[in-house]
Simulated scan of single mutants.
Amino acid sequence: MIITVTLNPALDRTLEVPSFTPGRRHRSLDQRTIPGGKGVNVARVLKLLGQPVIATGIIGGATGTRIVEGLSDESVLTAFVRIREESRTNMAVLDPTTGMHTEINERGPAVTEHELEMLEEKLIYLAKGASICLFAGSLPRGLEPDTYARLLRAVRKLGVLTVVDTDGEPLKLAVRAEPDVVSPNELEAEDLAGREFEGPEDRAQAVVEITRQGPAEAIMTVPDGCYAYVRENGEQTLYRVAIEPLEAQSPIGSGDAFLAGYIAARYQGRSPVECLRFGVACGAESTQHVGAGILDPRTVERLLDGVVATPMSLPAEVI
């Protein structure tokens, strides 16, 4: 079983608005409302890929009920903890004429220590029957920045493989808790490394440096694939994995689709490089759909032939 933990889930509403211009009145061409939040998006893709997954986290109010009902409609198992305050709603505006998208995300509810303790208790119970646990997304109000680190340590004691995808101070504290895998995007990786990246070698060096902060493996997603420093045959190996970019309908959630593909392949016991290739194919295919966490598994398989994984030499600065 795979667990996804989303502490700040949402209802994600995407509007297609041709020639969107701030300050003007518009009519949407199309709209879609689905359960969202990083971990929820990953759970959706895992289900589409045929993997056993259960989504847990924190929900509240009528919006929380709609999140659970939406996931149930997609046959995703859920085990959320209910809180007093209302879950959030996020809005994205996609302009099909330019491909530009604008996101407006609510902060989310305030969560008490007692509510977090209830989640931790449920998570430990679920983790006893799981082999992989993903912690993903932002933290709602009221939770300390070390919340993911705290939950991660509790799950690691049970021998569960842990994966983290968040940002800011929660990410910095989570990597110190020594997760098995951390998967930032380029901006999040720059924040961890404390500098802007200037080229491929600098990006490759960064993923190696990130593992020195605590995680066993680091994967940095970029628009056409990823840079990864992973354990293979008992040794750490550096990879650049890439695919020819597709003309995107919407890039929203492509990183979540990548991570879901990677986790699905890892759950199936594929080699590290095949996990990365499958993740990149999933991320690329998801850009062909409006709405996060949407892809066609059959198209993913066809895209795999175009995903190239290239081993890289370790930068001299980090040897």
Rank of each mutant, 00 (worst) to 15 (best):
I3A: 10
V5P: 06
V5A: 04
L7Y: 03
N8A: 11
R13E: 12
R13G: 02
T14E: 05
P18H: 00
P18T: 00
F20K: 06
T21D: 06
S28L: 14
S28F: 15
D30P: 01
I34C: 03
G39E: 11
V45G: 04
V45R: 06
L46E: 08
L48Q: 12
G50W: 13
I54E: 04
T56H: 01
I58A: 05
I59A: 08
G60Q: 10
A62I: 08
T63K: 07
G64S: 12
S75A: 13
V76G: 09
L77Y: 06
R82K: 13
R82Y: 08
E85N: 13
S87Y: 08
T97H: 07
T102Q: 12
E103N: 13
N105Q: 10
E115Y: 01
E117R: 13
E121H: 15
G129H: 06
L134Q: 04
G137M: 09
G142R: 04
P145A: 04
P145Q: 04
A149H: 07
R156M: 11
K157L: 09
G159H: 09
V163D: 05
D167E: 09
E169Q: 11
L171V: 11
L173C: 08
V175N: 05
V175I: 14
V175R: 03
R176V: 14
E178S: 07
V181W: 02
V181H: 04
V181C: 05
E188I: 02
A189T: 05
G194L: 07
E196C: 14
D202S: 15
D202F: 15
E209P: 00
E209Y: 01
I219W: 03
I219A: 00
V222N: 02
P223C: 01
G225Q: 09
Y227W: 15
Y227I: 07
Y227F: 15
Q236V: 00
Y239Q: 04
Y239W: 14
A242I: 11
L246Q: 07
A248D: 12
G253N: 06
F258W: 00
L259R: 06
G261K: 14
G261R: 14
Y267H: 15
S271P: 03
P272S: 09
P272D: 10
V273C: 03
V280L: 07
A284D: 01
T287D: 05
H289K: 12
L295F: 04
D296Q: 12
R298S: 05
P311L: 03
P311C: 03
E317I: 01
